[in-house]
Amino acid sequence: MKVIDLTHTISEAMPVYPGTEKPKLTTVNTYSKDGFKETLIQIYSHVGTHMDPPAHIFASQKTLDQFSPEQFIGKALVIDCRDLKEGQSITIDKINIDKAVSADFLLFNLGWDKRWKDESYFNDYPCIDDEVLEFILQGNFKGIGFDVIGLDPIHDENLTRHKALFKNRDIVNIENLKNLDQCGNDLFWFSCFPLKIENCDGSPIRAIAWYD
């Protein structure tokens, strides 16, 4: 079995969304003092490679802990968008429709993971346009994902795409993926399980691709 890790490591030095505090990993028990090591982890729910549920935007909508486990596993397809320049849109012609309709997850590869820990990671990354968003909403997808820090442009404080995605759909959105360039252009198995936290508005995940 071939397995590809699509997850950034959580660390105190990692990039975070503007206005968010960086993680704090504090050793509270040590080998020398206590005979074991234990760490106090302080992180925002939307740090690193993470997942948004509808409750991230709408108070009355579904939280991550209310989804069944089946929501977080299935077949995925990577959409190669690495030729797009900053500020351009992800358009429907990027998607192989015949393959996409058989997928549970559409993962958009902008090549942005190569900018991780570089200030340019916060530049004007390409985002899906209205036609692509409508295609997603009309499909039966469990989730979508990106190797950038947001579904919306970083300057869109209204979170327009988030609102449209979650308004009437129980779907998840994944941000800050990596290594999508290693996944090929055919369907593959994909999992993205979040922590099961009560009333969860978002959670770091361990995103994995694998091939039988």
Rank of each mutant, 00 (worst) to 15 (best):
G35F: 14
L6Y: 10
N176T: 06
F122T: 04
S89N: 06
D5T: 09
N140F: 07
K163M: 15
C192N: 09
T27L: 15
K163D: 01
F190D: 09
W189E: 12
M51G: 05
L195Q: 13
I57C: 09
L195W: 04
V28N: 10
S120N: 13
G184H: 07
F122L: 12
P194R: 00
I171D: 02
F190Q: 04
F188S: 08
C81K: 00
K85F: 07
A13Y: 13
E86Y: 14
K117Y: 13
D129N: 15
D186H: 03
I57F: 02
V148H: 10
H50R: 05
I174E: 00
F58L: 12
P23K: 08
G19N: 01
Q66C: 13
D181K: 05
I90L: 15
G145A: 13
W112A: 14
E198Q: 13
F190N: 01
D170W: 04
E175S: 11
S89W: 10
H162P: 03
E198V: 07
N96P: 04
F36G: 03
E175K: 01
L107K: 10
I205A: 01
K24F: 06
L106C: 07
K167P: 05
G74P: 02
D130K: 14
G145N: 11
I73W: 01
W116Y: 15
V78R: 04
F105Y: 12
I10K: 03
F193G: 02
Q42R: 11
N168H: 08
A59I: 02
D129S: 02
G143R: 09
R115P: 05
L137M: 14
N176H: 10
V47I: 14
T27C: 07
S11Q: 06
D52P: 01
G184N: 11
D130P: 07
P69V: 13
E198L: 15
K37A: 00
A13M: 10
